[in-house]
Design a binder for these strands. Structure first.
Length: 289
DNA sequence: GTAGCTACCAAGGGCCAACG
DNA sequence: CGTTGGCCCTTGGTAGCTAC
């Protein structure tokens, strides 16, 4: 499995995450850098049609286009890698799955045999929706995982980051020197939406939602209390928390409606709440006149 | 293997940023 | 400047990840 990294305030922590095993911390690197360092930033390959070196500049894979075109991007990367690095020895198409639940792991290669008489080998790739949030990260993660795919489908070897994988990783860097050095670990810093900070030692914990219960969860370093770091606008001014009237209505009425409709699903309860909310709003506006 | 934790799901209105 | 897309915010249930 891909080795990955979670963020800290002052450190990048590289984890070893192997199947069925507890992640182990391999190293801590003092850093504020949020980007992957390229193995050879200056030289690029001269392969016609290669877009690896300019991937971050391509408009169709940046900004709001990123989400729309990321499936196309993964297939393009796979096809280009297959042709230029693996001599078209890999299948024309491969199953690439966007995994919503992988939060600390950038990518994962599932390699196995079909349980039939032929025992055909197959592989599929999981890409983390959360960690791979840019075209560059998709490219680097995918190339890393394709090396595992090649190791299994071409050589029949499943040795994690062993000699076979290293051979293909080295070949990738030789043919595409514009790629960062392909190593066992990705040095990605995960872009969390929400951060919690310890009031004692200022250590930070990242989350994708405001799900962390600060009354129960304390700082792992000093057992201090954690507080949510205020969200900031682009100009640096804090975003004032504001509960929308509908959200407030749901909070006040959800339990009541749920008891009135015990055999209904959550979606039905929410539909009723939204209807009631609109009706109550209309009634209030009529009363004003 | 299991308990605990975390993110996602559904709905709506409203706000904000990005884009053409 | 108008349009579009994405996010915020609430709830309880649940899937799946993480830690032991």
């Amino acid at each position: 499995m891909v080795q990955t990294l979670i963020d800290g305030t002052n450190f990048l922590i590289i984890l070893s995450v192997d199947r069925g095993q507890i992640p182990k911390i391999l190293m801590k690197i003092p850093s504020n850098d949020n980007t992957a360092k390229c193995g050879n930033e200056k030289s690029t390959c001269k392969i016609p049609g290669c877009f690896f070196h300019e991937i971050e500049k391509l408009k169709q894979y940046s900004g709001r286009n990123f989400k729309h075109n990321k499936n196309e991007l993964t297939q393009r990367i796979y096809e280009l890698a297959n042709t230029t690095i693996f001599d078209d020895k890999l299948p024309k198409k491969i199953e690439i799955i966007w995994n919503k639940k992988m939060l600390h792991t950038a990518g994962l290669c599932i390699a196995n045999e079909i349980q039939n008489l032929k025992k055909e080998r197959y592989a599929r790739i999981h890409i983390s929706l959360k960690v791979c949030d840019s075209a560059v990260r998709i490219r680097d993660t995918l190339i890393h995982e394709i090396c595992h795919v090649a190791s299994w489908l071409i050589d029949g070897v499943q040795d994690s980051h062993g000699d076979s994988w290293k051979f293909y990783a080295k070949k990738c860097n030789e043919i595409h020197p514009e790629l960062p050095m392909i190593t066992r670990c990705h040095n990605y810093r995960i872009n969390y939406k929400i951060y919690y900070e310890c009031i004692q030692c200022s250590a930070r914990v990242g989350r994708y939602t405001k799900s962390l219960n600060t009354e129960r969860f304390l700082c792992t370093r000093c057992k201090g209390t954690l507080v949510m770091v205020p969200l900031l606008r682009k100009d640096g001014t804090p975003i004032q928390p504001y509960v929308r009237p509908f959200a407030m209505y749901v909070k006040q009425n959800y339990r009541k409606v749920m008891h009135e409709m015990p055999h209904y699903f959550h979606g039905d309860v929410m539909k009723k709440l939204s209807k009631d909310y609109i009706a109550e709003k209309k009634e209030k506006s009529l009363n004003l006149f």
